[in-house]
Amino acid sequence: MLVIGYGNPGRGDDGLGPAFAAAVGAIGPPEVEVSVDYQLTVDHVLEIADRDRVLFVDADVSLTVPFALTPLAPSRCGNLTSHSLSPGDVLALSQTLYGTVPEAHVLGIAGERFDRIAEGLSPAAARNLDLAIGWFVEWTGAPAKNPSRA
């Protein structure tokens, strides 16, 4: 499985995705690889094209629960920017260019502070991150060396 945590750690809770990926990387479950980036781009199409399973992890402003896992299908939007793609765009490009679509989910983790130009998570986002990491360890059956924030 490839875990792609993305977001801008310089914008408060937008750093939830990279923080999750860093924590999973520190735990080091077998057969889980981690990728961290600022946003999704066409580069990630190459990263996922030969994978069986992919988990996209991003901060979420709309959740009423600490985190949520959603199955993902290829998008048909087609209005790409080179700044960033949606997870569905990445899948769709993989399908179109390489004929492969891994089993994919999006893990959204609830954040609340995105407007400030500062590093560090809000207390609520930090709690949600810990809960999401705990869930991930159970989900993958990975031994938890250090199931906390990196």
């Binding site: 048909r76 939007c77 087609g78 209005n79 769709a92 490009l93 179109t96 260019l97």
Partner: peptide
């Protein structure tokens, strides 16, 4: 008129 149609034509 979107990128996926381009890629279908010329992957």
């Amino acid at each position: 008129r979107n990128i996926f149609e381009v890629l279908k034509d010329q992957p």
